[in-house]
């Protein structure tokens, strides 16, 4: 068999896998462009005629005001990302530049904490947030998010920092720079891609998180997008077309961010397992 023929076979296989893999997404987009009556028509259509772009406008500006939860999410996720990096970066630095008793245990702890599902911690977290009087506030959600993202961020960042050569930093110290200045002037710029990765990881985590706002937020004005999505499952009837439009809107920011950093993620998770 010649090389071309062989590759044709690969393409056919790949395309058929992707056809299955993208099926739900196609359904989502298609449904988001239907009318309420259209979603129940049988046999179903793939391309609604005419496509109801108005659904998106309805969801965003209409009575659901999906723009509000969207911006809530944006605020929560951005702040979570910022705080996470501020907390995690110095810690990752310490873990790669100092040797001290308990360093390995600390690394293990970080790894372990990142494995927790919020479900396990939520009862305890609820109490903390309650005693800080932060229930039903953005701050409450943000600090809880940070608790769950910081360990992973430390892990990702220390993986990155280990590959930043010491020599540059040391040159600065020889010149009489203090360590903190050295970090800010030299290490931080050099590890910018790693920092971006940790920030985006935290952003996406916060953007997708459902359980924390579900338990902590009761004021409807404070709901993030993930929680607001569940609104379309009304007491009476599920407005699938509008829900799907909102779903598409919710997915977009993550998709855009992700396309920048997916490569780094793999390295982060595999740190150690793959030599490059």
């Amino acid at each position: 068999m010649n090389k071309r023929g062989k590759h044709l076979w690969v393409h056919i296989l790949l395309l058929s896998i992707f056809a299955v893999l993208l099926f739900p997404v196609a359904v989502m987009v298609s449904t988001s462009l239907k009318t309420f009556a259209g979603i129940f028509s049988w046999p179903p259509t793939w391309i609604p005629d005419p496509p109801q772009w108005a659904n998106y406008i309805q969801v965003w500006f209409g009575p659901y005001q999906f723009s509000a939860p969207f911006f809530n999410s944006l605020f929560i996720a951005t702040t979570t990302a910022l705080i996470t990096v501020v907390l995690a970066f110095p810690a990752a630095y310490a873990l790669t530049r100092f040797s001290f008793v308990g360093r390995r245990s600390l690394l293990f702890l970080m790894l372990m904490t990142q494995m927790f599902s919020p479900v396990i911690l939520i009862v305890g977290l609820y109490q903390i947030v309650q005693s800080l009087q932060l229930l039903n506030t953005f701050t409450g959600i943000i600090i809880t998010n940070c608790a769950l993202t910081a360990p992973m961020a430390v892990w990702l960042l220390q993986g990155y920092l280990r590959n930043v050569p010491l020599a540059l930093e040391q040159a600065a110290y020889v010149d009489g720079c203090s360590r903190v200045t050295g970090i800010l002037r030299i290490i931080l710029p050099l590890s910018a891609p790693g920092v971006a990765m940790a920030a985006i990881y935290s952003f996406i985590f916060a953007w997708n998180e459902l359980l924390i706002p579900l338990i902590f937020i009761s004021d409807s004005q404070l709901r993030p997008a993930s929680l607001a999505l569940t609104d379309f499952v009304g007491q009476n009837v599920v407005y699938w077309h509008e829900m799907m439009a909102a779903s598409v809107i919710t997915t977009l920011p993550v998709a855009i961010l992700f396309s920048f950093v997916q490569r780094f993620f793999i390295q982060g998770f595999m740190s150690g397992a793959v030599k490059e």
Binding site: I83, L132, T137, F138, T139, I142, V180, L184
Partner: peptide, 20 residues
């Protein structure tokens, strides 16, 4: 110490905003 100060003030502002 600048960095720490900045961090603290961010946290503080957030906490206060929530408590107000």
């Amino acid at each position: 110490m600048k960095r720490r100060g900045l961090m603290l003030s961010i946290v503080l502002v957030l906490v206060l905003a929530g408590c107000m």
